[in-house]
């Protein structure tokens, strides 16, 4: 599904390299988690994959189902099935949430050569998806993320994921700013979307999210590289011992 080889990235406006050769291979239907201390390059990886400006790829490649995504515009990556759930979802005053969701869905359908979804069909679909995430009509009517609580914003991200049905989902610290109940609700939303054709890359600081969204593979990232990969137990090890032991181990 997603193949990243020796990805090296620097900041566009500064002579600072963030990613120093990341290798990652995510098979179809699997859930991978990336953990790592602050500043290790986790969020940069998510931004570079989704096409945010401000980064320069200086080496390596990334393919989604064989397609070189680093050459694509952000909207083309989205249409190709890549989805980034933002750590800090953006508030957009003046753009209604429903308008936003419908425009996004229809833009992706158009890019894939599919017909637009009618307003009635769309309304039905949104209501159905929103219900399980406990998103009420008021949240759908309000401007995108404006006045939403931290939990509401993250639920809105998962709603977008459920509507757009991407095949590769990147969750950037989706647990940050969530209380226990909200984390459970969001995790249930994610788990409901797990299937054979869809993969996840879950970026998190803490193991607790991985109690709810159980990963197949856990990677530890440090200083722009993945320094260790393993099963779910690796996350527990980090939770119990911190990163220091691991760092010492790999030198």
């Amino acid at each position: 599904m997603l193949e990243i080889k020796n990805l090296e990235v620097k900041l566009e406006e500064e002579d600072k390299q963030i990613l120093k050769g990341v290798n990652l291979s995510i098979e179809s239907g699997s859930v991978h988690a990336i953990m790592g201390p602050n500043g290790s390059g986790k969020s940069t990886l998510s931004y570079v994959l989704s096409g945010r400006e401000g980064y320069e790829v200086i080496g390596g490649e990334a393919h989604l189902d064989g397609e070189d995504i680093l050459e694509l515009e952000p909207e083309e990556r989205a249409a190709a099935g890549l989805f980034l759930a933002f750590q800090y979802p953006v508030e957009i005053p003046g753009v209604g949430n429903m308008t936003f969701l419908r425009t996004a869905l229809n833009a992706q359908r158009a890019a894939r050569g599919e017909d637009e979804m009618s307003a009635a069909d769309f309304l039905k679909l949104v209501r159905e998806k929103a219900k399980s995430l406990k998103i009420d009509g008021d949240m759908l009517k309000r401007p995108v993320n404006v006045g939403f609580s931290g939990g509401e914003k993250k639920r809105n991200e998962i709603l977008q994921m459920a509507l757009l049905e991407p095949k590769m989902c990147i969750l950037d610290e989706t647990d940050s700013g969530l209380d226990v109940d909200a984390m459970k609700l969001v995790s249930e939303g994610v788990n409901a979307l797990r299937n054979e054709g869809r993969s996840f890359l879950v970026i998190t600081h803490y193991q607790r999210l991985l109690d709810h969204i159980k990963p197949d593979v856990v990677h530890i990232m440090y200083d722009g590289r993945i320094i260790k990969s393993g099963g779910p137990d690796l996350a527990l090890e980090v939770e119990n011992n911190g990163y220091a032991d691991l760092l010492a181990e790999v030198g």
């Binding site: 989704s50 096409g51 945010r52 400006e53 515009e73 952000p74 909207e75 990556r77 989205a78 249409a79 989805f83 980034l84 933002f86 979802p89 953006v90 957009i92 936003f100 425009t103 996004a104 869905l105 833009a107 992706q108 890019a111 977008q160 757009l164």
Partner: peptide
Amino acid sequence: DSLFYLRARGVPE
């Protein structure tokens, strides 16, 4: 940020 958010959801620039 708003522009990137919209584009990341598939809306052309």
